[in-house]
């Protein structure tokens, strides 16, 4: 359990700058009469009205649901696909240029195309999220599996493990630290695309809420949406970090000792 407390302490140490920033914002905006930059105190009052917890089921739950489903689909497709491609020499050579090309397109720019192809429902949003998030995961998995240590491979082979056991029980687990770096990037992209996919044609979700509020000159409401997005992004990152630490305990333990 001490490891958990140490981790919590690290989070708190990392939180001092945001705290200073909020304090500064609070003071600097206190006397503001600019309608576009309302005082933080006003934003906070409206934040409580909107998000504790009146509008959470309408606008937060669908966004988070889309995000998680989309991200999970990306994981479930990209990790096995990346493992198979990474293990095959020619596979990597054929697939990588295509993957690199698609990945270079800003994911948000693909959302309109998905709308054209799939319409304006949750399915389209989840597909865009899954599609955009899968590329960093795919590339990281390919790289991780491809660079399996040769001694590890020799050992596994000398034990006469079947090719599939070598792939899923030796190469993939060994690649997990690299895979996780792809998961991290993929998750951030998934978050961005979740919000971006709601900006068009949706009445629900945090992206939709913020955009509609802005268009309707409900500036304070728009600000509460932005603040909530920031908080959510931050919290999701913490959760992600925790999952990574738990899954890669062997990796961090080993790193600490060497």
């Amino acid at each position: 359990m001490t490891r958990f407390w140490r981790w919590l302490l690290a989070v708190l140490i990392g939180a001092w700058l945001p705290i200073v920033f909020v304090a500064w914002w609070w003071n600097a905006s206190a006397e503001s009469t600019n309608p576009f930059f309302p005082p933080l105190s006003v934003i906070w009052e409206q934040f409580k009205v909107n998000w504790i917890f009146e509008l959470v089921p309408v606008h937060v739950v669908p966004s988070i649901r889309n995000l998680l489903i989309g991200f999970l689909i990306a994981v479930v497709i990209a990790i096995p696909a990346g493992t198979l491609i990474g293990a095959s020499r020619s596979g990597t050579r054929y697939v990588e240029p295509i993957v690199d090309f698609i990945r270079s397109i800003p994911p948000v720019a693909l959302v309109p195309i998905f709308i054209l192809l799939l319409g304006l429902d949750a399915q389209m949003r989840i597909t865009s999220i899954a599609f955009s998030a899968s590329f960093p995961i795919l590339l990281a998995t390919i790289e991780g599996v491809r660079s399996t240590n040769l001694v590890v491979l020799d050992t596994a082979q000398s034990f006469r493990l079947s090719p599939s056991a070598i792939l899923w029980r030796v190469r993939l687990p060994g690649a997990m630290p690299t895979v996780f770096s792809g998961l991290q990037v993929g998750f951030q992209i998934a978050f961005v695309v979740t919000i971006a996919s709601e900006v068009l044609g949706s009445g629900f979700g945090l992206g939709a809420f913020t955009l509609i509020a802005t268009d309707s000159f409900l500036i304070v409401d728009a600000w509460t949406g932005v603040v909530l997005l920031g908080i959510l992004g931050y919290l999701l990152n913490i959760v992600f970090d925790l999952v990574e630490r738990l899954s890669l305990r062997w990796y961090y333990g080993q790193k600490k000792l060497s």
């Binding site: 590890v152 020799d154 000398s158 006469r160």
Partner: peptide, 28 residues
């Protein structure tokens, strides 16, 4: 035929416990 290599830091799988490392070849 079983093999022991020089480079134990790499030939043992760091993500498996000692018991799981030893039982890995028994999967067959």
């Amino acid at each position: 035929l079983a093999v022991v290599l020089q480079d134990y830091t790499r030939s043992l799988m760091p993500w498996l416990t000692v018991a799981k490392n030893i039982s890995l070849p028994l999967r067959r």
